[in-house]
Amino acid sequence: MNQPRKTAVGDLLLAAGALIGAGLLFWGASELPPPRFEPLGSAALPRILGVCITVLALIIAAGAALGGKRHSIQEPDAASDEVAAADASDLSAARPLQTIAVLAALIVYVAALDVFRVPFVLATTILMAALGAFLGVARLRTAITIGITGVLLALAIQFVFERYLYVTIG
């Protein structure tokens, strides 16, 4: 896929997401009681934002649908303006699997702590080892080093939080 096409698809997805958000705002606002103590009321800002988001999303969607030509003019400008963002999208294109793996590991980790009440030290160690494996240089030693860092880190955090700060994690 070439760059302008990809931007256009991204823009359409963004517009779609924003429209769903705007829909939620309108839905939520419709259930609020009328103003009681001042003329604006709780529903005013959600409605205003809903309208703004809808309009902006439609502009973006229209721009993306009308397509390539205007983009090819705007693109160099926008790209140079947001060095970090642009290079981020290139990077994700490089190894998107790693991003997904890290995200999945994070979700499993928090779910383990929250839902399954896995002990903090155990969960943290496994998380660190997993991350080491996903991201590390291709060596077993690195993974082990990082796993051990995980144990030490987790023990240290748990010790400080429970002994001194009376916070039990999990």
């Binding site: 702590l113 998380l127 991350l131 590390g136 080093t145 994690i169």
Partner: peptide, 29 residues
């Protein structure tokens, strides 16, 4: 610092920190 280790440590701190503000896992999610 090697990235894998650094990111992992920061990730753990982010989870612990978000939790510790109000002792709530909702914040972590």
């Amino acid at each position: 610092i090697p990235r894998a280790g650094l990111l992992g440590v920061i990730l753990v701190f982010c989870v612990v920190g978000s939790f510790a503000v109000n002792n709530s896992f909702f914040d972590v999610w």
